[in-house]
Every structure is written in structure tokens, then in C-alpha cells.
């Protein structure tokens, strides 16, 4: 029968040192690892070094927050646009009104953009005029040709 220590190789054991230190191993796994440490001096030394390094981290103090911190943050908040602060609770207090307002705004922006894109601008009109002038060369254009079709379409739009 194999002993628990024999079940774990050194490489496998060392992968679990961190979890052992943080008590994040299952009971069974922990027992196997401890058994390995008992009979493996090299791993035991490695684990001690890791423990020492982890303990050394405790020697890094951190300062408390300055007492003025809250006041500084509140000042920055107050310095921000006040109308935004008034609007902040709106989505919670009246979600449907807020949603309706947002949709209306989106609709206006999208409508304005699409309207501008669909209606011919000055450039499109100038291009159309120059095409018609160029087609004068073919007049009278024979029926069934592309030029004839274009001229008919232009005449219809002109009406």
C-alpha cells in the first residue's frame, strides 16, 4: 500500500504550497501535503521560505486616509454640474418618465440625422445637374437606352 506522502511528488506538492498557506485546500489534500512535507526536507525548506516571505509582507504598513478626504470629495461633487445632481435620482423615482424622455431625445437625434442623410444636399443637386448637362450630347437619346431612362426619370422629378 502506498503511503500518503508517496502520493504527491515534489512538483505537485509545491504547486499547492500557496493554497496550504491560505487554508484553501480540502482536508484530504491538506493531510497528504503535510505528510509529504514531513518526509521531504527540500520541500519543507521551500515551504518555510515561502512562509517567511509571506510573514515579511506584514512589515509593510499603510497610512490611514487623511481626515479631509471626505470633505475634498464632497467639494468636488458640489463643484460638478448641479443640474446633473438634480437629475441623478430621476431614473429611480420615475423610471417610465426618464425612459420616455431618453427615447424622445434619441428619436429627435436619430430623426435629425436620418433626415439629413436622406434629403439631397447641395452636393447631390450639383452632381445631378452636371450629369444632365453631360447627357445633352446624346439628345435625342434613343428609346430603351440608359440615357433615355435617366432623362425620363429626371423629367419626372422635375415636375
Amino acid at each position: 500500500m502506498s503511503t500518503p506522502a508517496a502520493e504527491l511528488g515534489c512538483h505537485q506538492a509545491r504547486q499547492c504550497f500557496s493554497a496550504l498557506q491560505d487554508k484553501a485546500l480540502s482536508k484530504d489534500h491538506q493531510l497528504r501535503l503535510e505528510a509529504h512535507l514531513e518526509c521531504c526536507p527540500a520541500c519543507r525548506a521551500e515551504y518555510s521560505r515561502l512562509e517567511a516571505a509571506w510573514a515579511a509582507l506584514g512589515e509593510l504598513p499603510a497610512p490611514s486616509a487623511p481626515s479631509a478626504l471626505a470633505g475634498q470629495v464632497l467639494k468636488r461633487i458640489e463643484a460638478g454640474p448641479r443640474w446633473l445632481n438634480v437629475l441623478r435620482p430621476l431614473p429611480r423615482l420615475a423610471p417610465s418618465v426618464a425612459a420616455l424622455g431618453a427615447m424622445l431625445l434619441l428619436g429627435l437625434v436619430a430623426g435629425g440625422f436620418l433626415g439629413h442623410a436622406v434629403l439631397p444636399g447641395q452636393e447631390a443637386l450639383a452632381e445631378s445637374t452636371s450629369t444632365l448637362q453631360a447627357l445633352d450630347v446624346f439628345t435625342p437619346a434613343p428609346q430603351g437606352t440608359l440615357a433615355h431612362g435617366y432623362l425620363q426619370l429626371a423629367a419626372l422629378e422635375g415636375k
Partner: peptide
């Protein structure tokens, strides 16, 4: 969330050291 700055100051006092 409703804009209560007093609650915000209390929240900061409670957690500012850990953030720092």
C-alpha cells in the same frame, strides 16, 4: 443613489481607510 450626501459621508468614513 438618491443624492443623500450625509449618507455618502458616512459611507466614506466607514471605508476610506481600506481604499487608502
Amino acid at each position: 443613489a438618491l443624492g443623500d450626501s450625509q449618507a455618502f459621508a458616512a459611507l466614506m468614513a466607514r471605508h476610506q481607510d481600506r481604499v487608502m
